[in-house]
Design a protein around this nucleic acid. Sequence first.
DNA 1: GCCGTTATTGAGATTCTATATCATCTATTT
DNA 2: AAATAGATGATATAGAATCTCAATAACGGC
Lengths: 146, 146
Amino acid sequence: MPGDEEQVFRDFLAQKGRRWTPERQAVLREVFAHHDHFDAEELHRRLRERGLAVSRASVYRTLGLLVESGLVAEVFVEDGHMHYEHVYGHEHHCHLRCLGCRRIIEFRDEALPQVEARLAAAHQFQVTGHKLEVYGWCAACRGKQG
Amino acid sequence: MPGDEEQVFRDFLAQKGRRWTPERQAVLREVFAHHDHFDAEELHRRLRERGLAVSRASVYRTLGLLVESGLVAEVFVEDGHMHYEHVYGHEHHCHLRCLGCRRIIEFRDEALPQVEARLAAAHQFQVTGHKLEVYGWCAACRGKQG
DNA sequence: GCCGTTATTGAGATTCTATATCATCTATTT
DNA sequence: AAATAGATGATATAGAATCTCAATAACGGC
Ligand SMILES: [Mn+2]
Ligand SMILES: [Mn+2]
Ligand SMILES: [Zn+2]
Ligand SMILES: [Zn+2]
């Protein structure tokens, strides 16, 4: 359920013998405060702007825990570093990216569960997820070049 | 056509006012000598082992040109760095990855061109390609955990 | 609430990938 | 052959992410 992420993360930490701290709470809240794609430095900067002094090391460490818990996902690499998004409370979606303006459009397609099922059957895999990125040129950027 | 990659790369370079050099030839040949997923350091090591002294800088630079030309593709990030594969002369395929043993299975699925077409129509995009990674646990690794 | 155990934090150092510099070299043009 | 401009490679640099370690604080037991 949306809004439930704090309890989910606390349960995840408890089950692993890890602790719930103000720093982890601050990171979690900042991550779920916006629906967008962000990177670690940006998250660190946002926290500082809010006056929440969480160190860079803790931001990276908490981000790792959030990914491990499944609340957050690694989405794509751009400009040489990873970008993330919160996924808990949202339907799974994939990304359409414009190579010109770098705009990102989120989409869902009913064919993907079927692709997963075919692969699971064909290779005796227990499929846990997928990541699909589609590239191209948006209408505006196509006019300029491409 | 397979085997044609050298001429394609030479044409690409000529068209951009860049030059065909022994170093670029060595990199190109090494890249097309194996069908596998490799990273820049591994490519550099292989070249040295063959006695072809191409500097790390030239390996990275040539890899960039190969990607730009479309002969080689960036496949995925693992262990914090990019992995590549040659694509010229091969049908497009996607990757099924075991989260346990990290084995990679290549596959083709007829649904993906349709997904591309739907997206192009829905968002007025000129779609140029996609990258699909499916994750899960292979039969062997599922036995141990997961 | 207090205590002891042990995970966590943060500043700075470190590792590692990838790119930039720049003097020298070389391919191509005129 | 000389001029032009791109390429190379040793090295320096930038940047992302992790590690180190002393100080701190969460949590469970009392
Ligand atoms: Mn998204
Ligand atoms: Mn492949
Ligand atoms: Zn665009
Ligand atoms: Zn496996």
